[in-house]
Structure formats: C-alpha cells, structure tokens
Design a protein around this nucleic acid. Structure first.
Length: 975
RNA sequence: GCCCCCGUAGCCCAAUCGGCAGAGGCAGCCCACUUAAAAUGGGUUCAGUGCGGGUUCGAGUCCCGCCGGGGGCACCA
C-alpha cells in the first residue's frame, strides 16, 4: 500500500479495527438483549415492556451449517433482517432477533460414515465457522437465545412435543378453541378424552366390541387409528440407495429422492406417520390470514390439493352373489349420466371380490389383454403394476393401459350396465381409488375409451368450435342428462352439480364430499443423526411414551453410523436403522408408570426426520432456558400472540393468527418446512400450549445471489476471480480470457465446483463488513435474484468513505463538523431524506433507503464545512446498514452507543414545498414548465397554463376542448 | 399441457394514486491530484420501458394477445 494514503482514511484496515472494537463492546455489554415479560428471564421492570411499547420478532430460516462455511449469497437474508432489527430498535421497539442451527442431517452423517468421526464433532466445527462469520459481518443476534437442534435440552422438548402429538387425536366435531379465528369445527384433543368416550359408550368402538373387553394391544391398535402420530403399515417411499424411507415431500415428480437422486419404490412398511391430513382444511384456509408471498401460498394450496365434489355409489355384484357398492369420488357429479365405464386402481380391495371366473358376454377382445379368464388378466395386470417403479409409470407417459375386471356395475342414474376396468392411471391413494369414467368430459377417460373401444356420451354441449374428437372439459348446458326423477338438461355445470348432488343425497346414492391430495407425513427415518423417538415397545408390541423424567432420549454411540444401503434399484431390500445395531441401548427395562414396575422394553430405532427440529425452533427463541415448558405461555403470548390488526390483504373480519412478525428465508422451503411447522403449531394451539394459530405471520423469500461461471475450451470451470474481461470497441459483447486462453461466460449458482465462490471473509478483508453489508443491501430488492459483482462493491465503499470524510479529517483524524445552522435548502433535503429513509426501512426497501442516504451524503460532500445538525441524523440513519461505522462516528461526535438512539424524525413543516414545478402538457406532451405556489388553486393554475406563451404556440389557435388540472403539478390541455 | 413471477441505459436497479422516464451504484469518457500508476475527488455520455394491440386527456404502471427468462404442478378423477 502506498504511504500516500491518508492516515485516517476509512480503508478496509481501519474499518476492520472499528468493527472488531464495536463487536467486542456489544458482546461485552449484552447490547442486543431483549426483554421477556415472564419465564426464567422475566425482567418486568424493563422500560421496553411498558404498555404501548412495540415488540417485534424478526428472524431468518436458520441454517444447516455446512463444513464449507458461508459464501456471499448466504448472508443476504441475514443482513436484511439485521438491518430491520436494528432499525426497529431505534424506533423504540423491544426486538427479539436470534439465530440457531438446524444441525441434524445427512451431510454430517455422510461425512461421519466416511471418516468415522462422530457427526457431532463435524457439526460443532461447522457451527463455530458460521458463528464467526455471522459475528464478523455484525449481525445483532442475541447470543443468549441461540441453540442448535442437536442440543440435549432442545432435543428434550422436540421429543416432548412429539409425545403431545402422539397423545392427541383429531375430533372433527369439536368446537374450535376459544380465541381461535377458525370458522369450522375441528380440534386436536388429548387421547385420554377419546378413551373416556370409548369406555363410557358415548362413542362406538370400531369393530363393535365394548372397550373394556379389548386387550391392551387391541386398544392400542384402535387408538393408533386416531392418534396424530401413529404407526402404520402402509405403502411408503423406500429409497434403497439412501437406505431410508422418505416423505412424499422429499420425492421428486419423477419418482426419485430429492437428495441424491436415487430411485424410490413403494413398499409396505411399518413406519411412524403424522396425521397432517386432519389439518388439511385449516392449513389451506388459514393461508388467507397470512402475509406471505402469493406464490408460496399457492404452492401450499396445490400441495394440499383440496377438491370438492361428490362420492357416488355404483352397485356391483360380487362373485359370492351379494351386492357390493363401488364408491367413486368425482369433482364432476354433473356428468354422471355420461359415465359409461368405471376404473379401479390395481390395489383396490374390492377387486378380489368382483372378478368372475370366466369372461362374461359382451366382453370385447380388446378388454381381455389376451388372457383366458378375468382372474388371469387382472392378476397379471396387478403384478405388472406392482413391479413398476414410479419412474417407469412416469416414463410410460400418458399411454393408458388397463384390463377388464369381468364385472359390470350399474350407473345409478341411467341404470345402464357399465364395465369395470382395472387400470393404473387411477391411484389407490387418492379419493376412493375408483372412478366413474366420463369420456365425453374427461381427457384421460377419453383416451382410455378410445384405446378400449368404449362408448362416449356427451353430457355437456361443447362449444361450436370444439373438435369432435376430443373430450370437452369446459362449461356449457347439460344434455342427455335426465331420467324419470331428475333432469339436469339445460343447466350449467355449477347448477347441474348442485341439483344432482341433492338428488344423490335424497336417494341415498351419494353425497357431497371433499378430498385432498395431501397424504399423512411419513415421520421416521433409518438414520443415525436425528432425534431418537421417545418411544419404547413392550413385549405385547404396544408403543409407550418414555416417561417425561427420562427425556431426552439421547443417541447411543455406535461403531458404524451408516444405515444399510443397497443397490439403488434393489426394490426388495428392507430398511435397517443404524440404531438397531446398538443392542445394549435397544433392549432395556423401563418403568412405564402403569403400575407394572420395570418391564423389558425395546427402544424405537428409527429417528425423526431432519424437519422435526425446524418445526418449532422459533418458539424456543422466545424462552430458551425454560425448564418447565418449551415456552412460557405468557412469553409466547407477548411475543407472537394474535394482534388487534390483521395482516394486509386478509379477508374482511378475519382474526390475526399471530406468529413471528418477520420470517425471511428461501423459497425452497415453500412446502416442506413451512407446511410441517404450521401443522405442529396448530396442534400445539389446539392443545393449549400456544395462543397463536400460525408460526409465521409474515414471510419474505429473499432472492439468491448468483454468479458468472467461466469455462475453458474443454468445458471445465476456471477460477472466476482470475478471468479478465475485454470490452469490444464497437459495442459488441465482451470477451473473456483466463491465463490468456479464451473462456466462455455463463450465469448461475455460486458453488465450489464452479470455481466462482466469493466468501464474506474475502469481502470483509478487502472492504470491511459495513461496505459488504451496504453492497448486499443496495443490489436491489430483497426478493430479487441478482448477480454478484465484486468490482461494483467499491461504490459502497466510496459512500462510506465520503461519509467518514464528512465527519473526520483524513489526515489529522479530527472531527471537522461545524455548529452552523442548516441552510433552508439543506434542512429541506435532510428532512425529506429522513422521511423517505424511515419509510423505506419500515417497508424493507433498504436498496432505495441507501440511495437516498448516498444522495444526501453527496450533498454534504459538496459543502465547504459539514454542519453537525445535518450529519448527525445521517449517521443515525446509516446505523442499520453500516452499524460499526455509524457507532464509531456517533461516538466521535460526542455521544454514546447508538443502538438505541432514536431514529430521526422528519419535521412535517419541512416536507412541504413552497413552490413546485407544474408541467403543462398539450395533447399529453410536455410543452412548458411553470414555477407555481404549492397551494395554487386549480383555476389559477389553469389560467396560468393557458396564458403560457409556449403553450399558445403549440395550440396555434386550435380550440381548447378540455383542460385537465391536477394542482399543483400538472395541466393537460386537450384540443 | 396448466398455473405463478419477472423483462426500464453496456450492467445492477429507481420511478406513492395512471401525471416531467432517472434517485443511487458499477462500467465508459473527460478533468484535477501524481514523475507515473493506483487510490481519491470533480464532471459527463448513455434508454423511451421485450413485441403488437386496447382503455384513457395522459400508460413503465391498467386490460388483451404474443416473445424471452425463472419457478411450481403435472394421469389427483
């Protein structure tokens, strides 16, 4: 570095010294501690808890700490929330801003498998890197509220919540909890209340036997049909390549694991499930009460997939001569008259009862699949369907396959005999696993009818331009839709639905119903590095909760952390959990508190999925050291309880659901984490543990910082930082070279293998943390994706340098501000800036706030001497984005720490202009500008405009037809 | 195939209610400082808003249809 650089210039080196000094001081003085009204940390005398004082919870989605540390993209959201938290503190709010770690998970486990090192060790190392980086960039998290999901104290409460869920059932008839904004009935209740209903006969026991006559194991099985966390043997997603089962949400559309991209197979396995489907309606409805991005709400609505329609019974004879009822679900009951055949899923239970021994009369050749008998045909088809992986079903596209079951059902409105087919385009997991096929109004049914030579009856009149050879799925008048009792003819789709459903209900043939795409959440994993279930199995095979005083159940040490993995396409393999190998841990004795004393038990060897810890961490921030509850209800109510005002855009009359005031994170969690957390929160609400109905009142998805990737002639990425750009002189595109070799440029993610990673460490080293923060925030709106450009960072550095120079002499280090009064123009500029910056910060428009501050700072730079009265408010305004520099200047200006210094207030008197420039347009084109008084009347302005010489020239004697006046800024003359 | 978001200067981005297209930054160019360069400071060039229609006195903004980019869903009855 040159010796010419002034000694007191705001360089990266000086910035570094300032930043470390203030970071140390803030830590020493616990500057960012917020006040709790109750619980172990109660400080009721804290002035911030006084009536009428604002309180806000601001947080980011906590990170999974990867061994590589952060690149510049990761802290974008963190800086944004930090700026907001710091701004809110200056407005006097009690601000809870904390950060933890989502620390269970697969990467650490993989690393442990490779190295034999315990995953806790690598995880702790990664966390300390993250902590160092977050401190380095000046994030004002409250240190005492931090924790990791792997901390035994946290695991204890995660397990406790699991037990609450396990010990609860959903009563769809129960009134909502008082204080809920719910409009329909339905609430989780303790399982004990269900047992009471069974034993005193208020509720019939499934199976019909009295409750008292059931064995413990039988009772447990009945209760498993109700519990919100239950074990079920059901088709689940088995991924041999990972050696674990997966939730639906973790399987991609083409039937592979989201992580690792291995094939996933449906296997019937006994696994833990969470009854999230019980909450499908509330999870959909309450989206309206949240201030969330519309696209996230849409994704959740689609995922839940509520569709309303009707269930209709089609009589079908069984082979034993009885008459069964084939229930179908349809969203188009209005097309019932056009149902010319039926299709059931290959796994449908009724198939076994309706398939006759020989092909009935009327069987067409195309229907038999060449088989000698229906039984042979159906069995072969079922076998074929079962062997298909989801991948194969996908790659076969939309070509329809199926086979006639040999059974004929009766269409309940037409009385027609309709053939029943078995086909895999109907899914057992959705609706009733059976459909009525209406080729006239459904494209899939049309395809099938075409392939299998089945009749088509149109029951909605297609529009005149609709092709003859296609199903018509639009709206139109019903046709061919009448019998002796009911006629839909002439009705539109909606009216026809209503009339036919009424008739079905009247005659007992069907009823209005709702189905969902959402399935229950598969909650167990065959992994080591996760929360153990707080569950043991007794010798009768009954699951018991581990008594509360024995929580947390901690992971045993095992010699091998790996689940048993298999060939990725070995569909017949079975999951084997790593914990099963810790035999001493698995087999133990335990007093279950049921009077039997210590009995031999076997521990559950599955672990919870990595989503468990992130389902409730925001609650623990509120009261992290509470030993009696996950969170003190008074603390929860204070911080995230429902507010008086509803969120913007909420429907009229909706109640505020409560929740975190601001939650910032990536859109990749739109369905998984955010749906699971909402579900847990609602259970906790129903059971009375929290007063809020939703975890996150307001959500913002921050954009991603992307970067250029440069590849050499062979296509290999070269270090992006060493690439040279050559701008072409004729305005054409730039070319790029690396070590003299031409390279190509593309745009994408930042990643180690792409050799384009930029770390916050490098940026802090080169520019200082405050410059880094200002740059990240000035790149554009928070939600936006944007490219990283290191060479542009200097602009933010220059801003801070100029600000520094406006206060401190670069050569002497002396404070140079004067006590002169502000000129009227400067005062106005200052107060306009204060006004704009304040509202920009409040609305998270940090990019425009920074632009305003740069503007004001540039004005001050031009002055011979900078007045204290102008630069002090500017320093205060800068504090949220450049907190260390601002604190340093504030101190040099003779004050103490400005973390809680009040944000400057704009003087309304200085915001109004005396005179403004009015634009005069002729035919919408600007023809003149007039300086007029700000309070000029419309009539005066009109007269003034019409009198303008320039205007008269453009009017050129043409008659004025109309004059639009928007005093004081605009006049438009229409001729 | 269906749905959602985004297209403003060479680049990143501003533009309350529909009212003068430009706040801020990068790059470029010119100048000052310098033996020189970097750094720093000062000045300055640059678009009519992806395309085509429409509504309106007036459209970047509202409506319709395309094009381009990104994302979600995809046999869900």
């Amino acid at each position: 570095m040159s010796e010419r650089t002034p000694q007191h210039r705001y360089t990266a080196e000086l910035a570094g010294r300032i930043e470390r000094r203030w970071q140390d001081r803030w830590e020493r003085e616990d500057t960012f501690a917020s006040a709790n009204p109750a619980g172990p940390w109660a400080t009721p005398q804290d002035p911030r808890l006084a009536d009428g004082r604002e309180h806000r919870v601001v947080m980011d989605m906590f990170p999974y700490p990867s061994g590589a540390g952060m690149h510049v993209g990761h802290p974008l959201g963190y800086v944004a929330t930090d700026v907001h938290a710091r701004f809110l503190r200056m407005t006097g709010a009690n601000v809870l801003y904390a950060m933890g770690f989502d620390a269970f998970g697969l990467p650490a486990e993989h690393y442990a498998v490779q190295t034999g090192q315990h995953p806790r060790v690598t995880t702790e190392e990664a966390m300390s890197t993250y902590r160092r980086q977050m401190r380095m960039i000046g994030l004002s998290h409250e240190p005492r509220r931090t924790f990791a999901t792997i901390d035994p104290d946290y695991v204890r409460w995660t397990q406790w919540i699991f037990q609450q869920i396990h010990d609860a059932w959903y009563d769809p008839e129960a009134d909502p909890r008082p204080g809920s904004g719910q409009t329909a009935p339905g609430r989780a209740r303790p399982i004990g209340e269900l047992v009471e209903q069974f034993s005193d006969g208020r509720r019939e026991v499934p199976g019909g036997r009295p409750w008292g006559e059931l064995s413990t194991a039988e009772q447990a099985r009945v209760l498993d049909g109700y519990r919100l966390a239950y074990v079920s043997a059901a088709p689940v997603n088995w991924c041999p390549g990972l050696g674990t089962v997966l939730a639906n949400e973790e399987v991609t559309a083409d039937g592979r694991s989201e992580r690792g991209d291995f094939p996933v197979f449906k296997r019937n396995l006994s696994q833990w499930m969470m009854r999230i489907t019980a909450y499908a309606d509330r999870l959909t409805d309450d989206l309206d009460r949240l201030d969330w991005p519309e696209r996230v709400r849409l994704m959740q609505r689609n995922w839940i997939g509520r569709s309303t329609g009707a269930q209709v019974a089609f009589p079908v004879p069984t082979t034993s001569g009885a008459e069964a009822s084939l229930e179908v679900f349809t969203t188009r009951p209005d097309t019932l008259f056009g149902a010319t055949f039926m299709v059931v899923a290959p796994e449908h239970p009724l198939v076994g009862q309706i398939v006759p021994e020989t092909w009935p009369t009327g069987t067409k050749d195309a229907w038999t699949g060449g088989a000698p008998s229906p039984l042979a045909a159906v069995t072969a088809y079922q076998r074929q369907a079962a062997a298909k992986s989801d991948v194969e079903r996908q790659t076969e596209g939309k070509a329809k396959s199926g086979v006639f079951s040999g059974a004929w059902a009766t269409n309940p409105v037409t009385g027609a005999q309709v053939p029943v087919f078995v086909a895999d385009y109907v899914l057992m997991g959705y609706g009733t696993g059976a459909i009525m096929a209406v080729p006239g109004q459904d494209e899939r049914d049309w395809d099938f009818a075409l392939a299998y030579d089945l009749p088509v009856v149109r029951t909605v009149q297609p529009t005149p331009d609709h092709p003859e050879d296609q199903a018509f799925t639009g709206d139109g008048p019903a046709i061919n839709s009448a019998n002796d009792e009911v006629s839909l003819d002439g009705l539109g789709v909606e009216d026809a639905k209503e009339r036919i459903v009424a008739w079905l209900e009247q005659t007992g043939r069907g009823r209005a119903t709702v189905t969902y795409r959402l399935r229950d959440w598969l909650f167990s994993r065959q992994r080591y590095w996760g929360e153990p279930f707080p569950v043991v199995w007794d010798e009768d095979g009954v699951a018991h909760a581990v008594p509360d005083d024995q929580l947390p159940v901690t992971l045993p040490d095992v010699p091998d952390y790996a689940p048993r993995t298999f060939e990725a396409d070995d569909a017949d393999s079975e999951p084997e959990a790593p914990l099963a190998r810790a035999t001493d841990w698995v087999h133990t004795t335990m007093d279950l508190g049921d009077g039997r004393g210590p009995v031999p038990v076997r521990r559950e060897t599955n672990t919870m999925p990595n989503w468990a810890g992130s389902c409730w961490y925001y609650l623990r921030y509120l009261d992290p050291e509470n030993a009696a509850a996950p969170v003190d209800p008074a603390v929860e109510g204070y911080w995230i309880g429902p507010r008086e005002e509803t969120v913007p855009g909420a429907p009229e009359g909706a109640a505020d659901p409560g929740g975190v005031d601001l939650y910032v994170g990536g859109v990749e969690h739109a369905v998984l984490h955010l749906l699971y957390a909402r579900f847990w929160h609602k259970v906790l609400f129903d059971l009375g543990h929290v007063s809020s109905e939703e975890p996150f009142r307001r959500l913002i998805n921050q954009g991603m910082i992307e970067a250029y990737v440069y590849r050499d002639a062979r296509g290999f990425p070269v270090p992006a930082a060493e690439v040279e750009e050559h701008t072409s002189s004729d305005g054409g595109p730039s070319t790029f070279t690396w070590q003299g070799q031409p390279v190509t440029q593309e745009y994408g993610k930042m990643g180690k293998s792409l050799k384009n990673v930029v770390t916050p460490d490098e940026m802090v080293e080169q520019f200082g943390a405050d410059t880094f923060r200002v740059y990240e925030m000035s790149m554009g709106p928070l939600e936006q994706y944007r490219p990283w450009e290191t060479r542009a960072v200097v602009g933010s550095q220059r801003f801070l340098q100029r600000l520094w120079r406006n206060v401190v002499d670069e050569d002497t280090g002396e404070v140079t501000v004067t006590d002169e009064a502000l000129s009227p123009d400067l005062a106005k500029a200052l107060h306009r800036t204060i006004d704009a910056v304040g509202s920009d910060y409040a609305a998270l428009r940090t990019n425009t706030a920074i632009a305003r501050m740069i503007e004001l700072n540039n004005l001050l730079t031009k002055l011979d001497a900078v007045p204290r009265a102008a630069v002090e408010p500017l320093v205060q305004m800068v504090a949220p984005v450049a907190p260390h520099l601002a604190a340093e200047l504030w101190e040099r200006l003779g004050h103490d720490d400005l973390t809680y210094a009040p944000f400057p207030q704009a003087d309304p008197a200085l915001l109004v202009e005396d005179s403004v420039t009015a634009v005069v347009q002729v035919r919408g084109k600007v023809r003149d500008r007039l300086d007029v008084a700000a309070d000029i009347s419309e009539a005066d302005l009109e007269a003034l405009a019409l009198g303008s010489e320039k205007v008269q020239r453009f009017l050129d004697g043409a008659p004025v037809r109309k004059v639009i006046v928007r005093a004081p800024s605009l006049v438009n003359i229409v001729v």
